[in-house]
Amino acid sequence: MTGGAWRWRGTIDVWLVVAAGGAIGGIARYGLLVLFPRTGTGFPWATFFENVAGSFAIGVMIVLITEFIRPHRLLRPFLGVGVLGGFTTFSTYAVDVVSLVDAGAPRTALVYLFVTLAAALPAAWAGMTLTRATAAYRRNRTARKVKEPR
C-alpha cells in the first residue's frame, strides 16, 4: 500500500497460478484430514504431517530454485505460495492447540505445540541439506562419467 491506496501487484497470470496452486494444496490437505480425522482430544496427525512435510518440501524447493535451476517466473508463486501455502497451515495448527486445551487435553496441546516446531524446522533444514547433497552427488557422478573413457 502506498499513500493509503491498494496497488495492483503482479500480473493476472501470477494471481492465477497462485490460485491454481492453492487449490491443489488445499485439496491435498483436505484429503489428509479425511484420511486422518481429528478427534476432540486426539493428536492432530493430519495437520502435523502437513506442516512437517510442507516444511521439508519448501526446503527442497528453495534450494532448487535459488541454487540449481533458473525457474520460470511462475514456478515459485505456483509451488511456494500456491501449492505449499494451501497445503501447510499455521492457522489450523494454532486453532488445534487452543481446541485441545478447551477439550481438556492440555498435555496433548503442549506436546503438539512443541513437537510440530521440533519436527518442522529440522524438516526444512533436511530438505535443503538433502537437496544440496543430491545435487553434489549427481555433479560428481556426471564429472566421473565424462572423465572415464568408454
Rank of each mutant, 00 (worst) to 15 (best):
T2S: 06
T2K: 12
G4H: 09
G4I: 13
A5W: 13
R7E: 07
W8N: 04
G10N: 08
G10Q: 09
I12K: 07
W15R: 03
A23D: 08
I24K: 03
G25N: 07
G25W: 13
I27W: 15
R29W: 12
R29S: 06
Y30C: 05
Y30M: 12
Y30H: 14
L32R: 02
L33K: 08
L35K: 07
F36V: 06
P37A: 01
T39V: 13
T41E: 00
F43R: 04
P44Q: 04
P44D: 03
A46W: 10
T47G: 08
F49W: 13
E50A: 01
N51W: 13
V52Y: 08
A53F: 15
G54W: 14
G54Y: 11
S55G: 01
S55T: 02
S55A: 13
F56Y: 14
A57F: 15
V60G: 05
V63A: 04
V63M: 02
I65S: 01
I65R: 01
T66I: 06
E67A: 06
F68T: 05
R70N: 05
P71Q: 06
P71H: 04
H72W: 15
R73F: 03
R73A: 04
L75K: 08
L75T: 02
P77R: 09
P77A: 00
L79G: 05
L79K: 08
G80W: 12
V81E: 05
V83L: 00
V83T: 08
L84D: 01
G85Q: 11
G86C: 03
F87K: 10
T89D: 01
T89E: 14
F90G: 09
F90Y: 13
S91I: 01
Y93F: 13
A94T: 12
V98E: 14
S99R: 11
S99D: 15
L100R: 02
L100A: 00
D102C: 02
A103Y: 03
A103V: 00
P106N: 04
R107I: 15
R107V: 15
T108H: 00
T108W: 11
T108A: 09
A109D: 08
L110M: 13
V111Y: 10
Y112K: 05
Y112M: 02
T116F: 10
L117Q: 12
A119N: 01
A120P: 00
P122V: 01
A124W: 08
G127K: 09
M128V: 06
M128E: 10
T129G: 03
T131G: 03
R132Q: 03
T134Q: 03
A135Q: 03
A136R: 14
Y137V: 14
Y137D: 00
R138N: 05
R139I: 12
N140V: 13
R141E: 10
R141T: 01
T142C: 04
T142W: 12
A143E: 07
R144S: 08
K145W: 10
